[in-house]
Structure formats: C-alpha cells, structure tokens
Design a protein around this nucleic acid. Structure first.
Length: 129
RNA sequence: UGACAAGUGGCCGCCGACGCACGUCUUUGUGCGGCGCGUCGGAGGAAAGUCCGAACACGACAGGAGAACGAUGGUGGGUAACGCCCACCCGCCCGUCUGGCCGCGGGCGAGGGCCAGUGCCACAGAAAGCAAACCGCCCGGCGGCAUGCCGUCAGGUAAGGGUGAAAGGGUGCGGUAAGAGCGCACCGCCCGACCGGCGACGGUCGGGGCACGGUCAACCCCAUCGCGUGCAAGAUCAUGCAGUCCCCCUCGGGGCCUCGGCCCCGGACGGUUGCUCCGACCGGGUGGGACGGGUGGAUCGCUGAAGGAUCCGGUCGGUAACGGCCGGGCAAGAGAAAUGGCCGCGGCGUCCCCGGACGCUCACAGAAUUCGGCUUAUGUCAUAUC
RNA sequence: CGGGGUGUAGCGCAGCUUGGUAGCGCGUCUCGUUCGGGACGAGAAGGUCGUAGGUUCAAAUCCUAUCACCCCGA
C-alpha cells in the first residue's frame, strides 16, 4: 500500500515528476479563464484550484522571449525553482507561468518571484471563498 | 583547407530502457498501475534556414503517345538520387617569366541555342537594325573676288569630330579627288577537309573580303528529368455530430422461375478513364460524385543485440570524387515536450589597498519520421598563401 | 514540425505580368475663404521600394541568398 502522505507531513525529497505538470491544452485554458493572476517582475502567474492534493505547474514561454536556447534555459530554471519551493507553496493549485522578455536571471531569484506570486494567488482565492 | 567544440570532483533533481521488490483484479495475464532501489544511456556541427535529392506513408492512376506546367543546362565520370561531388574543356581576372605572346601558379563563371522565329534596346544622337550624311573632307557646276577665299546647287565619302552601353571587323602599308577589305600582310570571324581526343574541344591546311550588334536570370526552341501531398503523412480503437445537393441507370431476342427478379447472346447509347487522342473498363447498385458537420483522447508509426545508400582503420583499383575486400565501432527518442540546479578546485575578464570582491564557465546555438547534400551563423588550434 | 504569403511616403494600398516616368487616398505644411475654427478651394514638401549580391547599357520589377512579420494544417 502506497501511503498517500498527509499534507502536514514533512516531504523529505524534493521531486518534480510528470504528474506535477500540466499536460493538456484545456488545463491551460482553464487556468487562463480563472482570471486570477499575480505579476512579479517578468513573470505573470495564473492560478486556479484543482481537485488534487498537490499543485501543478505549467509554463508558457512565447517566441517573443527569445530563441529556443533562451526559452529552454528559462523553463529549466523555473522548473527547478518550483521543485525546490514546492513545500512552501500552497498546494492544490494549477499554476501557469507566462514570461516576458528579460535579462538573464539566476534560479534563486525566480524562486523568490514564484513564491511571492503563489502566496498572492492563494490570498485572492481565500478572500473570494 | 583540416581538427575539436570545453575542464574536474561532490550533493540534489529530470527523461527513457532493463532488472528486482510493491500494489491491484469477476479477465492471474508476467495484464495494468504508480512508488522505491539498482544498472545503462541521454543534443549539434551546424540539431538552424527548409533551398534541393531520396526513403517511407496516403491519395490518384490498366497501358501508350501528345499537350500543358515545373526544374535542370559546357563535357566526361561518381552516386540510391540530386540543382551535390570529382576531373577536364572554354572564357575572364590576378600573380610570375618576358620587350610582348606562349608557358607556369592561383581564383571566378546559372557556361545549350538569338546565322528557328518573335519582342525590346528609354534618353541623347543625323542615324539603333534588309543601317545612317549633323559637322567635317573631296570632285564638279554657277555667282562674287585677285589663284588660295566666300556663298550656293548637285553628288561622292564612314578616315576624323560629336551623341550613346552599343555606330556594322582591328592594326599597319599601299591606294584614292577625298575615302572605303578597294588591294596586301598579320590578328579576328565564317565555311570546308584532314588529324588528335570517349567527349566538350584543340591543331593543321585550304577557301571566303566579311554577309554575323546586344539581350534567352525576355517570350521561346532543343535535350534530359518530373504524378500530387507530406509523419499534424497515415493505421487502429474510443468519444462525438447533421446532414445537403448532383449524375447514371437504355433497346431487341432467348432461358430459368418462388412472378419479384436473375442469367445468357447481340447491337447501339451513355458514363469513367488527371487536359486531348488511341486504347481499356463499367452500366437497374448495399452505384458514382461534390460540399458540409463532429472528435482531437489513447496505442502504433517512433527509433531497433541489429539496424544501415552508416562511421573509422588497413589494403587493392582509380588522377580524383568514389568503389571492392578485410577488421573494428555505433543503444537520445519526447509528446505543453527530458539532458538541469547548487557548492568546491581549476581557467578567463573587470575593479581596487596584491589579496580579495563581482561576473562568466565560455562562440554560434537546443534533437521532434529518418538519411545524402547545399547555404547561413560561429570560438579555438594547426597548416598553406597573400 | 510541415506548408504558404507579404515587405513601396507618417498610415492604408497600386505599380512588378511585358525592366527605362515610382502613383492614389487619408494625414502634414503654406496660402485663400471666416471675427476665429471646422469644412471647402489652390499649391507644396515627403520614399535607401526590408537587406546584400548577381544578370543587363539600365532593376521597385528578373534571378539567388538573407532578415522581419503574418496566415494555414492532425
């Protein structure tokens, strides 16, 4: 029996598997349609509660951000930031991060922006009930 | 032109394959599922641009000929194929030798045909395409004058001036009233013969005074090649929706029979056959065609212990591209898309108070069905040339 | 990933087929009209034809490469 860990138990390993990602166009459409977003620097994060016990991440980096090398590097650092920050982030949300063109940033900076935006989105949903 | 494309150690994480444990079931299949552990593998020379050529898939198509459309364009070879590669020919340019050519070395060239046809050649200029007398030059007639000179008329003349991108062979000598391939020499051009070469082409000899402007990346002609669409091709399952319109179904005779049809023979007609022709096929059927609507989830295609027009080394053949033989090597495979993050050492750059601080981990750049090329972007090193 | 299209004046578009003069509308500027403005009338300015090579006497136009933007496709 695989024990489904309770939310308050400390997660020792910081993993980020495929189930923590959004993988269908309708998930992205639903997140955008939720109209709840928070902007931190070059990042704009859309958030929407899902029916799961964990949060999921979706990345939307358009061609305007730069060539493929730049886009891939940004996505890798955002994924790593989400992985390391996951215990501190509110769970049960689908987050979609859109990116504007910007100068190169280190991973811990992305982590701060992501954490701040996720807290903001959580407060907005708590207020609206 | 060739080579390599970036260090090293630790911790954490991601994707795929396999193995071991685990869970699950009206189907105990080694099925499905996710978690854990272990092992192995995990971006490029351009992965890029998508400019060519193929493999593969679906659609169309019996076959043949032609038209239309598109592509290629010196010759020979290489290759699965190519618009790619190699060698050679021709033309042009640069260097070198020389008084100058020839020769030698290197580079560049979309390099079939405008002596098949048609079109175009603005402006300028007298004239621009079966050439043409503006100025000039010259003979002659007439008038003025003093032989030269001036004016005028009728001619000759493409040597000179001027225009133009281009003015219908060039240079020299002769010749002439002045000139002119008018004549001659050399060079160029055209035609023919012979010789060498697989061939592009080259050489020699003879003839012709010369008729041939440019443009085919203008229409076009010639030769060769080519069906269309592309892995979002396409196959299967699931989910789901809504249908609409058009066309053809003929005639005579005979047979069977459950009397609705079926079969056979013959003739014409009609339809399909990419546009046409020849030819072929079909014709009372679960028929053919045109348009529209819906889904977009899953598995396969999809990446291989054996794959390949594969790479490396040796050897043989070939000037070379390349080919034969022998030996060896080669495991990414996603599906909103994996190859990353942090720290130490090392390296590089900037700043100052000589040891620290900060930044970078090096350029160009990220696989998406798979190969062969081309083109473009770009760091370092080696070699060669200027 | 694959396929296709467009770059011309500040803006929106012609011109390219068949090569020699870059044109139209709106806008801008000047003048007139009006007490002033708008509208109207008259006139003027403004373009490396995305970029770089090539063919040609001559290129926005033909050819090649390259850059940017847009559209379509299970």
């Amino acid at each position: 029996m695989v024990d489904e860990r309770p939310g308050d138990e400390v997660v020792e390993r910081l993993t980020f598997r495929r189930r923590h990602r959004l993988s269908h166009a309708r998930d992205y459409q639903a997140a955008f349609a939720g109209k709840v977003r928070a902007t931190r620097g070059p990042l704009t994060v859309f958030g929407r509660p899902n029916e799961l016990s964990h949060s999921r991440l979706g990345l939307s980096v358009g061609r305007r951000v730069g060539p493929a090398v730049v886009r891939v590097r940004i996505k890798r650092r955002l994924r790593e930031a989400f992985r390391l920050a996951r215990p501190e982030l509110p769970s049960g949300y689908d987050f979609v991060v859109t990116v504007r063109r910007h100068q190169r940033m280190k991973m811990d900076r992305y982590q701060q922006l992501l954490h701040s935006a996720a807290q903001d989105i959580d407060r907005q949903w708590q207020r609206h009930g």
